[in-house]
Design a protein around this nucleic acid. Structure first.
Lengths: 205, 205
DNA sequence: GTCTATAAGAAGATAGAC
DNA sequence: GTCTATCTTCTTATAGAC
């Protein structure tokens, strides 16, 4: 990997662990394996490194939103997935998603960094809410809406149903981000949450 | 208010907005209305101010847990509250709680500060999880358990039911902390969430 | 307890050789 | 592009007068 890229990568790791202000240019250089002044041949200053990370993040988010909206509105693509959507399948879907978001290196570091920088300015605040509140509710709302339209679930308010599905998962994710040792506990709660969710929206409403 | 107290108060405000590392001793002194060196007559150094805030926080948390466990296990105290616990009362209970936690100055600043410092060390991580995950689930679990035992709600897994009640509220709280302009939107979602919660656990299970 | 003056050190950034 | 040497600025903290 070229130096420019490795700087972004190591900086993201450090920013996500300690926050922008607690990471020194020297720390980043050390991780990359160069001296601090060399770093300025690649980026104008420390802020420019942060900005580059945010830019890439935004680019990936947009790409992701684009991909999801294509698949999400394509009935044939999703119909395949939900042919046999019983409770166990829903548990597996949720658990897999949870584990992916928790362990995927890039996703996890971005989430933790935004957590630490979310109050810095309105753009970062908006970015956090969009990625971890609005987008998941929109996208998962489409999925759950499909399950409703196919008769696997019943609800008269899909957005609220989506909140009931997603909010506990989001909360457990934040717990594991700060206390990774609670992952097993969180997974146990996750499974019980989804089974209960399926019972609530699957048969009784 | 004496200077020692005002230092803690202004420091908490600044730490909650900008994070510990981005607040300079001079900023705190300025808010208090003294010069930075005078501050060292009251606290050994900047870290000692932070530690004092954390100590008071812990003290209040313990007090709170103590009070709640007394009221929570006292059937007569709670029975009164839940004589007429219909859907509208539940909405009001949830909304009032939400607005209190969102707007109460001390509570809000502590929550935001811990959000920014939660990855700093294991103690702070534990403190955050305890206050915003474990404690609410325990306490609200006791309340909802009471409603179950009194026939207002039905559930075979009260902890998961409590998660379904609390996680959306927590999530909306974090949205409003970073985007205060979304409070009305959040309150609207809150109400729909609680009404749906009541329908799900009140009649169909 | 508050101030002014100042020390001590850290951190970001630049200059210029290689 | 990387290095060493260095500058500049910012920040914490102390000294000592009032």
């Amino acid at each position: 990997m070229d130096t420019r890229r490795r700087i972004l990568d190591e900086a993201l790791t450090l920013f996500s662990e300690k926050g922008y202000a607690n990471v020194f240019v020297n720390d980043i250089a050390e991780k990359v394996g160069i001296k601090a002044p060399s770093l300025y041949k690649h980026y104008k200053n420390k802020q420019a490194i942060f900005d580059a990370i945010i830019d890439e993040m935004n680019h990936r988010f947009e790409q992701q939103a684009h991909d999801l909206s294509i698949n999400g509105t394509d009935p044939t693509a999703d119909a395949e997935v939900y042919k046999n959507m019983d409770e166990d399948h829903l548990v597996k879907l949720g658990t897999d998603l949870f584990i992916y978001y928790l362990h995927d290196s890039y996703t996890r570091r971005v989430r933790k960094m935004l957590t630490l920088e979310q109050f810095k300015d309105k753009d970062l605040a908006k970015m956090y809410s969009k990625q971890y509140f609005d987008m998941p509710l929109t996208y998962q709302g489409m999925l759950l809406g499909l399950l409703v339209s196919q008769g696997f679930l019943m609800a008269d308010d899909v957005p609220v149903m989506t909140l009931h599905f997603y909010a506990p998962i989001y909360m457990l994710l934040t717990v594991c981000d700060r206390q990774p040792e609670r992952e097993q506990e969180a997974l146990g709660i996750m499974e019980k949450h989804i089974r209960q969710f399926d019972k609530l929206y699957g048969r009784n409403f």
